[in-house]
Amino acid sequence: MKIVQAIKKGNEPIVLQNPGRLKEPLVLVFGNRYLLEDDGLYNEIRALFPEGHIVFGTTSGEIIDDNVLEGTVVLTAIEFEKSKILVKRCNVKDYKHDDKKLGANLAAQFPKDNLKHLFVISEGSTVNGSALIEGIEHLNSNNFGLSGGLCGDDDRFERTLASYNENPKEGEIVAIGFYGDTLEISSANYGGWTTFGPERIITKSKGNILFELDGKPALDLYKTYLGEKANELPKSALLYPLSVKATEDAEPLVRTIINIDEVESTMTLAGDIPEGSRVQLMMSSVDDIANGAYHAAELAMQNRKAAPELALLISCVGRKLVMDQRTEEEIEEVKAVIGDSTVISGFYSYGEMAPFGGQDSCKLHNQTMTLTLFSE
């Protein structure tokens, strides 16, 4: 595996840190939405990597090595020497926002023979991440791994962009398939948040839209808890996500709000929130989040045969808001576990995709640190 990285700031040209010709590399470009709206960026990267499979995604912060950046573009180009990749894309508008169908059709484009893993970079403004994952895994008879994340737009929640081999645009969902006998790919996630306050029942919801808690308008109830911070919704909701437990035996999932409807008094969350689920508010601290990142890395490293050569980190924008000037501490905690020789890239997101530790089925998470580790 050969890897080249670069950072682009503003209008400055991209300068590769360790230049060298790569054969048909996967080029991951994570960056600030305003920079990815520049039509010249794609051409600049295409000139650097004429044979590259270029995948874009907007962020709420960029990760490279143990640094967390803002207002930049980070580029990671990977040549797999013993393995192959295949990249496919779909757009939500072509499926009338039937995200499960989109996921199923996206997965169907990948030959399943020797498919080890799908890594998904999805638009993050409107997609129901739970339905998308359900569609992708619908016919997963080969038990390939699945991880990835929803693109971000800082804490603006205006629009997110992604693309494959073209200028970034809205509504895109890109999947990267990894094939090869020598590939070892592991993924895991962990949060570090704790519940507080009374437990309530979801009495009315549809997909990822929450209407009522305990028979009362959900948004009104949530605003009561937030107090003055309600004026900053949906940004302020990132500090107080919801723990959602669908059944008594189910693992609780963390859900954050990505949009609100003042007229209907509803909240749109990043993933499903089934009726009858029990929910509680959650909160966290800097130390808890850093410890959660360390534990996520431990889970990703469990039972690995080879040291990881590449780590793709996707962490939630809500964690970044809590960590503030100490955000890099959670990346440092990850690096302490996976080792200094592992190349690190990634971004802060509106949602993370990964299985729970020890499980195969992927879930949509919020407020977690998610790692996908690669070696050949």
Rank of each mutant, 00 (worst) to 15 (best):
G207P: 02
K93V: 14
A162M: 04
A188H: 13
T372M: 08
V127T: 11
D340C: 09
V29E: 03
S122E: 10
V286S: 07
G152W: 00
L146F: 15
G171S: 04
L132D: 00
N32F: 06
G271Q: 07
I314S: 05
K229R: 14
K101M: 08
D340E: 09
S265A: 15
V279M: 04
G57T: 14
D94C: 02
L299G: 02
L139P: 03
K8S: 05
G180W: 00
K23H: 07
P252K: 05
N165Y: 02
Q5A: 05
N11T: 14
I64K: 00
L106M: 14
S186H: 09
H138K: 14
Q359D: 04
P50Y: 07
G192F: 01
E44D: 11
A300M: 10
L48E: 02
S315P: 02
V74R: 00
Q5T: 15
T327V: 13
P308T: 08
L242E: 01
I202S: 04
G31L: 03
Y294F: 11
S186G: 11
T58H: 01
D181A: 15
H138G: 12
V120T: 12
I133R: 01
F30R: 08
L118S: 06
R326V: 03
A6N: 07
R46S: 08
R33G: 06
D98F: 09
T182E: 07
S186W: 02
L226T: 06
G177Y: 00
D99Y: 15
L219H: 08
I136R: 09
I7L: 08
E44S: 15
G20S: 12
A296N: 01
N114R: 13
P252H: 09
K9Q: 02
A311K: 00
L106Y: 04
P111D: 14
K8E: 01
E332C: 12
C90K: 15
E70H: 11
